[in-house]
Design a protein around this nucleic acid. Sequence first.
RNA 1: GCAGCUGUAGCUCAGUUGGUUAGAGCGCCUGACUGUGGAUCAGGAGGUCGGUGGUUCGAGUCCACCCAGCUGUACCA
Length: 540
Amino acid sequence: MNKNPKQKSNKIKARLPRGLADRGPAELAATREMIEKIRAVYERYGFEAVETPAIEYTDALGKFLPDQDRPNEGVFSFQDDDEQWLSLRYDLTAPLARYVAENFQHLALPYRSYRYGWVFRNEKPGPGRFRQFMQFDADTVGAASVAADAEMCMLAADTMEELGLRRQYVVKVNSRKLLDGILDFIGLSGEDNFYRRLIVLRAVDKYDRLGWAGVKQLLGDGRQDESGDFTKGAGLSEEQIAPIQYLLTRPPQNLQEGEELPSWEAADALYYNFKFGNDPARVPIRNSRTIETLRGHFNSPLFEQGLDELDEIAALAYRARYGSARILVDTSVVRGLEYYTGPVYEAELTFEVKDEKGRLVRFGSVAGGGRYDGLIARFTGQKVPATGFSIGVSRLLAALQHTGKIQVKPQPGPVIVTVMDKERMGEYQGMVKELRDAGIRAELYLGNPKNFPNQLKYADKRNSPCVVIQGSDERHRPGGPVVTVKDLMLGSRLSDKDSDRAEHLRRQSGAQMIVPREHLVPAIIQLLLQNRVIETDQIS
RNA sequence: GCAGCUGUAGCUCAGUUGGUUAGAGCGCCUGACUGUGGAUCAGGAGGUCGGUGGUUCGAGUCCACCCAGCUGUACCA
């Protein structure tokens, strides 16, 4: 068709857009398993499911209308045929706020709901960072009480436990009011300081990555990274930086000498290796101590209010017997989003793993959330308190794979009924049907049946537990027709690379059994049960 | 966006100071071993060396620009 001699190829190159991923059967099965576990916990807490579409009007997402030149900065956006801007959602919180505002009359407040789904961000992808990823989200709307926040923390902790991560995670809590109070205190309040507050927030959010030295530069004049790129700082003075440093570098506080923990808490507390003189001792952390030591440090009512909130959350968690190993008050947690107005929380994995190249991988934060009392007011004008929590499903799954908590192995394939004689396809199909009726995954070999080895190769690639063979030998048995059932799992264990072909075939015959045609189904069920491909309760 | 590194077959990579028809291993396909996954053996397909332009008698190799990927950094409402 194309007459251009310079045309190189009219083939389209098959390629995956960057930052996106295909997912195979193993990963899908693992994801499903994980989601069911999370869902079970959320349901137990009384949250109900609600789903919103992946596309929203751009303004509903809180993003200003896209730049005509760069409409996809950060979010994927496009114009509808009536010229209105639409965008793919970048989280599940903003769409929920829209849903609540739109259905306010009909919802029973406090409204508690959960949902999971894909969200999209048009940002530079990196290891473990995709442009499409899954979030699992829970929100309580219409409850101003910090009890709702405390419950989010407990929900987060219970979810991690359910996923088998006991003692491998910690839910950290802080209140945005602490930082806001300090910003007030150092004279950064008011509309005209909005931008500087934003810089401070961003800088502080990088604490775990850059450490205090890096954050300090960002709060001051600015910071130059290894590649030579310079980031302008917030331009704060030493006196303004000091209170922020106090908040950020203040570690969770230990139990005081003479104090004792009840045994449940001792077993559920986080310990620090702390030096008394020269003796290192493992000293438990107590959240109430962390809060106490911050009292009255700044002349700021907002700061004290934040401490009150944390105190209440800590007390509620304590009464529900969550120790500091599970819910930890940590004033260095900030979270980047500016819409948070009160308590913020983050579930962090505390273990480290090595990747294929032997490099250390820290999963860090796998979930987070907080109170956003202003989000729904954007639609209704009326302030509606809300608090929510989101799990990064894909990232958490990657972590679970590393700990071996979840199997991401290929699932066993179907039983393959092979074709020895293509005139008798109907009979083979009949065997398949019998197996399926018994609840067993089975399929007829649909490829070219000309050479038999290919059929076994196919079954091997599908990870099939066994194949069914019936050629003329089996059909014309004097005692009546039989089938050969070949156990591929046993066969692969029996194969030996050093042996020659004759030896190989002799060995393989040991992995086969001959059963009367009418006993096909029970024989296969027995084989699958023996190999743990199916469980007894799966037989129909 | 900024910076550094990388780009040769499906994958992992060789390719000498620029020199004929660009290679290997693995994988893939076909066949042999009369109806058995593996091993073995015999064949085969697959690359305008990321793209364009330049220097040169001659470029996978040198130069410029562009593109893509990776890493760091920024942005992430």
